[in-house]
Amino acid sequence: MRSKGISGQYSVLFVLPAFCLFSLFFILPNLSGLVMAFTNWSSYFPLHPKFNGWRNFQDLFESPVFAISVRNTLIFTAATTIVKIVVGFGLALILNNGVKYKNTYRTIIFSPFVFNPLVIAYVFSALYQPTFGPINTLLRHVGLGFLAQNWLTDTKYAMTAICVMDIWMSIGAIVVIFLTGLQSVPKEYYEAATVDGAGGISKFRHITFPLTIYSLCINTILCLIGGAKVFGQVYGLTNGGPADATQVYGTFIFKSFSSGLFGYSAAAGLLFTIVISLVSFITLGLFRRLEVDY
């Protein structure tokens, strides 16, 4: 009786402003994307788009640059996700097992989180500079001069250079999440396992791994989505060049948008939205099955 009276006090007015704003600038555009993708909307007639059926999608699938950008995005996402998860988990394990100055290390690795990806990209374009760049200088110093490359202008290495920078700047958040996951495992479990005579590896397999699978799930999704959405890193370092060798989905959409092909970019955006949403939901579902209750 009383709780019903209280419930009446939570007026819908509380949620309405947020609801309207979110609907207008997020939900509505996402829904209208379903329509826009099938129009010839362009910068010539910005307010009078006309339907042109599947034309945009046909054009997309016939465009070689689109194919390259899809392939590059997949490679980038796979490579950075694997490295960030494996190395990030390794670093979190090291930090969790008590090296000295553990918090200092964590702070240092995490710090790029506050920097703009474009600004980081400019610093890295200096690091990658072929003649004087510190990376090539270092390689020559230690006698590995043959490894020195034109990192950003050689089509073979540009994508790798971008991946390295992305891992450098965003592994910190991954480490922090793993670390929190590791710290949430009750210490008694390890003590009990030691009493039972379990070694380091079986402790990892039977305690650490199953109990940190939730943070593994979150990190994998973050890496996958972050990788697929990559934009600033590529835009700042190479802007898709040399010769579209590093064109990714985000830069491809921006390029089509800048040349005024709005309907075409909307079609590319729609495909992206559908794929990313599906991947996220599937990954979430998959990990939910692996999860262990404790």
């Binding site: 207008l24 600038f25 997020f26 509505l28 555009p29 996402n30 209208s32 994307g33 826009m36 909307w41 989505i225 959405k229 959409i253 948008f257 709005f262 970019s265 909307a266 955006g269 729609l270 992206f272 939205t273 990313i276 949403s277 996220s280 939901f281």
Partner: peptide, 13 residues
């Protein structure tokens, strides 16, 4: 949180 932002249609809005 899950669905990416639809930038181009937002531009139209």
């Amino acid at each position: 949180i899950i669905v990416p932002t639809a930038i181009i249609p937002t531009y139209f809005t």
